[in-house]
Protein backbone atom coordinates (compact mmCIF):
# COMPACT_ATOMS: atom_id res chain seq x y z
CA UNK A 1 0.00 0.00 0.00
CA UNK A 2 1.33 3.40 -0.88
CA UNK A 3 1.82 5.85 1.94
CA UNK A 4 0.04 9.13 1.39
CA UNK A 5 2.24 12.27 1.53
CA UNK A 6 -0.67 14.58 0.91
CA UNK A 7 -0.42 17.32 3.54
CA UNK A 8 -3.22 17.16 6.04
CA UNK A 9 -2.32 20.41 7.73
CA UNK A 10 -0.37 23.39 6.36
CA UNK A 11 0.78 26.45 8.31
CA UNK A 12 2.69 29.34 6.76
CA UNK A 13 4.22 32.41 8.39
CA UNK A 14 6.67 35.09 7.28
CA UNK A 15 9.32 36.44 9.64
CA UNK A 16 11.78 39.33 9.23
CA UNK A 17 15.25 37.83 8.73
CA UNK A 18 16.86 38.98 11.95
CA UNK A 19 17.97 37.22 15.09
CA UNK A 20 15.16 38.78 17.10
CA UNK A 21 12.70 36.65 15.07
CA UNK A 22 14.22 33.36 16.25
CA UNK A 23 12.05 33.12 19.37
CA UNK A 24 8.84 33.66 17.35
CA UNK A 25 9.99 31.17 14.71
CA UNK A 26 10.61 28.66 17.50
CA UNK A 27 7.12 29.17 18.87
CA UNK A 28 5.63 28.62 15.40
CA UNK A 29 7.70 25.45 14.85
CA UNK A 30 7.01 24.03 18.31
CA UNK A 31 3.26 24.37 17.76
CA UNK A 32 3.49 22.49 14.47
CA UNK A 33 5.76 19.83 15.99
CA UNK A 34 3.30 19.32 18.84
CA UNK A 35 0.45 19.10 16.34
CA UNK A 36 2.45 16.40 14.50
CA UNK A 37 2.53 14.60 17.86
CA UNK A 38 6.30 14.46 18.08
CA UNK A 39 7.59 13.64 21.56
CA UNK A 40 9.46 16.28 23.58
CA UNK A 41 12.82 15.14 22.20
CA UNK A 42 11.49 15.34 18.65
CA UNK A 43 10.05 18.82 19.27
CA UNK A 44 13.38 20.03 20.71
CA UNK A 45 15.34 18.61 17.78
CA UNK A 46 13.11 20.14 15.12
CA UNK A 47 13.20 23.48 16.97
CA UNK A 48 16.99 23.23 17.08
CA UNK A 49 17.43 22.37 13.38
CA UNK A 50 15.14 25.20 12.29
CA UNK A 51 16.86 27.69 14.63
CA UNK A 52 20.23 26.77 13.12
CA UNK A 53 18.90 26.93 9.56
CA UNK A 54 17.29 30.34 10.13
CA UNK A 55 20.42 31.67 11.88
CA UNK A 56 22.40 30.63 8.80
CA UNK A 57 19.95 32.37 6.48
CA UNK A 58 20.17 35.56 8.56
CA UNK A 59 23.96 35.44 8.78
CA UNK A 60 24.94 34.08 5.37
CA UNK A 61 22.07 34.65 2.94
CA UNK A 62 21.20 38.13 4.09
CA UNK A 63 24.52 39.00 5.74
CA UNK A 64 22.70 40.46 8.75
CA UNK A 65 20.89 43.03 6.61
CA UNK A 66 17.41 43.58 7.97
CA UNK A 67 15.70 43.89 4.60
CA UNK A 68 14.77 40.27 3.91
CA UNK A 69 12.20 37.78 5.10
CA UNK A 70 12.13 34.09 5.87
CA UNK A 71 9.00 32.29 4.71
CA UNK A 72 8.29 29.31 6.84
CA UNK A 73 5.82 26.58 5.89
CA UNK A 74 5.01 23.56 8.05
CA UNK A 75 3.22 20.62 6.45
CA UNK A 76 1.99 17.67 8.43
CA UNK A 77 0.98 14.47 6.68
CA UNK A 78 0.52 10.87 7.77
CA UNK A 79 4.23 10.18 7.92
CA UNK A 80 6.13 13.40 8.53
CA UNK A 81 6.44 17.00 9.57
CA UNK A 82 7.98 18.89 6.65
CA UNK A 83 9.36 22.39 7.18
CA UNK A 84 10.09 24.52 4.15
CA UNK A 85 12.22 27.64 4.67
CA UNK A 86 12.44 30.08 1.79
CA UNK A 87 14.65 33.15 1.53
CA UNK A 88 15.73 35.56 -1.18
CA UNK A 89 19.31 36.18 -0.10
CA UNK A 90 22.58 34.81 -1.39
CA UNK A 91 22.54 31.06 -2.07
CA UNK A 92 23.93 29.13 0.89
CA UNK A 93 23.97 25.36 0.70
CA UNK A 94 24.37 23.85 4.16
CA UNK A 95 25.07 20.44 2.61
CA UNK A 96 28.30 21.87 1.13
CA UNK A 97 29.86 22.62 4.53
CA UNK A 98 32.11 19.91 6.03
CA UNK A 99 31.27 18.47 9.43
CA UNK A 100 33.31 19.74 12.38
CA UNK A 101 35.59 17.35 14.28
CA UNK A 102 33.71 16.84 17.55
CA UNK A 103 36.48 14.69 19.00
CA UNK A 104 39.32 17.24 18.73
CA UNK A 105 40.93 18.52 21.95
CA UNK A 106 39.69 21.85 23.32
CA UNK A 107 42.41 24.03 21.82
CA UNK A 108 41.80 22.62 18.34
CA UNK A 109 38.02 23.02 18.41
CA UNK A 110 36.74 25.54 15.92
CA UNK A 111 33.55 27.34 16.76
CA UNK A 112 31.85 26.84 13.39
CA UNK A 113 29.90 24.06 11.73
CA UNK A 114 28.11 22.87 14.87
CA UNK A 115 24.78 24.27 13.71
CA UNK A 116 24.90 22.21 10.54
CA UNK A 117 25.58 19.14 12.64
CA UNK A 118 22.27 19.63 14.44
CA UNK A 119 20.44 20.08 11.13
CA UNK A 120 21.94 16.92 9.63
CA UNK A 121 21.81 14.64 12.63
CA UNK A 122 18.46 15.67 14.01
CA UNK A 123 16.37 15.80 10.83
CA UNK A 124 15.54 12.72 8.79
CA UNK A 125 15.86 14.47 5.41
CA UNK A 126 17.51 17.76 4.38
CA UNK A 127 17.03 19.09 0.84
CA UNK A 128 18.35 22.33 -0.57
CA UNK A 129 17.45 24.07 -3.83
CA UNK A 130 18.23 27.51 -5.18
CA UNK A 131 16.91 29.30 -8.20
CA UNK A 132 16.31 32.88 -9.30
CA UNK A 133 13.12 32.67 -7.25
CA UNK A 134 15.10 32.17 -4.05
CA UNK A 135 16.58 29.50 -1.82
CA UNK A 136 14.51 26.67 -0.44
CA UNK A 137 15.60 24.46 2.42
CA UNK A 138 13.33 21.53 3.19
CA UNK A 139 13.67 19.77 6.53
CA UNK A 140 11.75 16.55 7.15
CA UNK A 141 11.14 14.85 10.47
CA UNK A 142 9.33 11.50 10.37
CA UNK A 143 6.48 11.19 12.80
CA UNK A 144 7.33 7.53 13.24
CA UNK A 145 10.30 5.55 11.96
CA UNK A 146 9.65 4.85 8.24
CA UNK A 147 8.60 1.30 7.39
CA UNK A 148 11.39 -0.76 5.83
Amino acid sequence: MEVSRKPLIVHTAVFPARYESLASISQFIRQAAAQAELDSTGVYRVDSAVDEACSNIIEHAYGNRVTGNIECTCQIDDTALTIILRDYGRPFNPNAIPEPDVTAPLEERTDHGLGLLFIRKWMDEVHYEFSEQGNTLTLVKYRKPPKQ
Binding site: Y44, S48, D51, S55, D111, L114
Partner: peptide, 13 residues
Protein backbone atom coordinates in the same frame (compact mmCIF):
# COMPACT_ATOMS: atom_id res chain seq x y z
CA UNK B 1 15.02 25.79 27.69
CA UNK B 2 17.16 25.77 24.57
CA UNK B 3 20.76 26.28 23.46
CA UNK B 4 21.84 26.71 19.85
CA UNK B 5 25.31 26.50 18.31
CA UNK B 6 25.67 30.24 19.03
CA UNK B 7 25.42 29.43 22.75
CA UNK B 8 27.79 26.47 22.37
CA UNK B 9 30.34 28.83 20.76
CA UNK B 10 30.17 31.02 23.87
CA UNK B 11 30.77 27.97 26.07
CA UNK B 12 33.76 26.77 24.09
CA UNK B 13 35.39 30.19 23.85
Amino acid sequence: EFISSAGLRVLIN
